[in-house]
Design a protein around this nucleic acid. Structure first.
Length: 421
DNA sequence: TCTGGGGTCCTAGGACCC
DNA sequence: TCTGGGGTCCTAGGACCC
């Protein structure tokens, strides 16, 4: 059985901010979502103050003031860059790595001859020394057990040193009996409610149910999970994942009723999607646009709608996607409402090369060199240097980001300066 | 006053075809 | 007007993840 390691960065966004503000060590730190809306990351100290994941910023104002919580606007460029650094270090410990999210990955440790706990401690030490991002590591025979081990490692950090290896049946059962059903990977709110109704309170009890029962209540996804928790590898390591959908969606900082304002944003979202598509060397065959009013405002009329448009040809051209997106918007837009959020999602991908082969069937081929040039200019100079006419500069909008940290690692003008005397 | 963003997978049911 | 079955494809919706 190839053992797997699961690596999780602790309180990742908050830890990234701390890397560049060492004075914040041991102090409560939170990071807010776009428009400074909700808390999306909390340091341990902030968690202890009772700040919940996803809690709106205005509801925790008092706690922030009273306890002098350090607050940051989300700086995703910085986090993405720190994430790459962490993973490239971990990649040195195994050739087979699955990047599961911005702050988590799995490693296949087959063939590693050193003691695996020692190996895990080495990883932890190296990542922390080179990046100052604290991590937790779990090791087990399957991905689900490695994930479980990480929880143990983190929860009992004082005893485990942040690394836990489930290397015996005894430890497996102990960990599963300890793990609340709601905390099992793949068991969310709905499922845990249902399972609790059957008196299944922890992961171990789930593994004791029959295959039939598990499949009936949790589909084949749940069945795979059961095997994995039993130590039978069923959830595979997925090394390269090309995305199947790409989305750009935003909540507006205020409510918008004028279609021109919304068109400008939707057009910008489509341009962003096209950039992400080109980065992955894909074209899309369909585009989805949605708009919605502010559903927190029960006193106002509500409307939301979404439309999927099939494209006549596959494309990743910013110009064409912006055109299709604005046409789609016009089909679902209803005047008389105040809109709070909109988004563009591109779907149904095909590889970019195929497009170039069909040169006579596709109108968009002339855009390919143009898009390449735009990408290059935007990379070389500042982001969004080149914009479409629909993203009219006069209507340019910005997110509320009052507490944005510097782009320490991705902008030469904002790197930390060290004076050597 | 202020409430995130970006993904994956599975299933049931309808449309359509033979 | 009554009468079958089986297969495939697509989509909406619901669950989940971070």
């Amino acid at each position: 059985m190839p053992p797997f390691a699961h690596i999780d960065c602790n309180n990742f966004y908050a830890s990234c901010e701390r890397v560049f503000n060492p004075s914040l060590r041991d102090k409560p730190v939170i990071v807010l979502s776009n428009n400074d809306g909700c808390a999306i990351a909390r340091s341990n100290e902030a968690k202890k103050l009772g700040i919940k994941m996803g809690e709106p910023a205005f509801k925790i104002k008092d706690i922030i003031e009273k306890h002098d919580v350090a607050v940051f606007s989300a700086n995703f460029e910085l986090y993405g860059d720190m994430s790459n650094r962490v993973f490239s270090i971990l990649g040195g410990f195994s050739a087979k790595i699955e990047i599961y999210s911005i702050d988590e990955c799995f490693l296949d440790l087959e063939g590693i001859t050193t003691d695996l706990r020692t190996y895990g401690l080495e990883m932890k030490q190296r990542v922390e020394k080179w990046t100052h991002i604290p991590i937790s590591i779990g090791i087990g025979a399957t991905k689900a057990l490695a994930k479980t081990a990480t929880r143990v490692a983190k929860k009992f950090a004082a005893q485990t040193g942040g690394v836990h290896y489930i290397d015996s049946e005894e430890k497996r059962i102990k960990a599963l009996k300890w793990l609340d059903i709601a905390d099992v990977w793949g068991i969310g709110r709905q499922y845990s409610k249902r399972l609790l109704a059957y008196n299944i309170k922890n992961a171990y009890q789930l593994t004791m149910m029959s295959d039939d029962w598990v499949k009936r209540h949790l589909t084949v996804v749940g069945l795979r999970l059961k095997y994995d928790l039993q130590g039978i590898p069923t959830i595979r390591l997925d090394e390269i994942k090309d995305k199947k959908n790409i989305a750009t969606t935003r909540t507006f900082d205020n409510m918008l009723g004028d279609i021109r304002d919304i068109r400008e944003r939707v057009s910008t979202f489509a341009v962003k999607c096209s950039e992400k598509l080109r980065k992955q060397k894909s074209c899309c065959n369909a585009i989805q646009v949605f708009i919605t009013t502010n559903y927190f405002r029960e006193d106002m009329p509500q409307y939301s709608n979404s439309i999927v448009v099939k494209l006549p040809f596959a494309t990743n051209s910013a110009i064409e996607l912006a055109n299709f997106a604005t046409l789609a918007l016009e089909k679902i837009f209803r005047p008389g409402y105040k809109y709070k959020k909109a988004g563009v999602i591109v779907l149904d991908f095909s590889p970019e090369e195929n497009q170039q082969l069909n040169i006579f069937e596709n109108r968009n081929t002339k855009h390919i060199p143009l898009m390449k040039a735009i990408d290059k200019l935007n990379r070389r100079y500042s982001k969004d240097l080149i914009r479409l006419a629909t993203q009219a500069p006069g209507r340019t909008w910005r997110m509320r980001q009052e507490k944005l940290s510097n782009h320490y690692t991705t902008d030469i003008n904002e790197v930390v300066k060290v004076r050597v005397s």
